[in-house]
């Protein structure tokens, strides 16, 4: 398991390799990549210039680590890696990786979807949209895909 909250993400291919080399039982690696979108997340049609992320890094790592452990117990996945950026991120840049290794794809897809949702709703990480109209902290992401 690896959780990293940092200004830079590691290279995705090396993270996948890290997981794959850890076990000979892995039959599937499922990946979510969070990318900065050019329009605001709440349907207001504002053009996003950049995002600014802030985190309680110690707590976020702890909370996400706990999510991965629970996911192993619930879905039987073999392991997972989560990385999330803090600081500024421009449109089109990647900001989050969630990588799940499992024996079969079925549990991998389930665990991945659940982990991504949990991280968005429960990990102490916050996002500010910097748009042409001003800067806005995203206060409520319930309902946003």
């Amino acid at each position: 398991m690896k959780v990293k909250i940092s200004e830079r993400l590691d290279e995705l291919a090396s993270l996948v390799r890290e997981l794959e080399e850890a076990s000979g039982e892995i039959g599937a690696v499922t990946i979510f990549i969070g990318v900065v979108r050019g329009t605001d997340g709440l349907g207001r049609n504002r053009r996003v210039l950049k995002l600014e992320y802030e985190a309680h890094e110690t707590l976020a790592s702890k909370v996400i680590g706990g999510m991965i452990e629970k996911s192993k117990a619930k879905h039987g996945i073999i392991d997972a890696i989560v990385e999330h950026r803090v600081g500024e991120a421009r449109v089109g840049e990647e900001v989050m990786y969630v990588i799940v290794a499992s024996k079969h794809r079925k549990e991998g897809f389930k665990a991945l979807t659940e982990l991504v949702d949990k991280i968005k709703h429960e990990a102490p990480i916050w996002k500010k949209e910097v748009t042409e109209e001003g800067e806005y902290w995203i206060e409520d992401i319930s309902g946003t895909p």
Partner: peptide, 10 residues
């Protein structure tokens, strides 16, 4: 003691 808004990351 850390007091924080609900999350909005990802």
């Amino acid at each position: 003691v850390d007091i924080m808004p609900l999350p909005s990351g990802g």
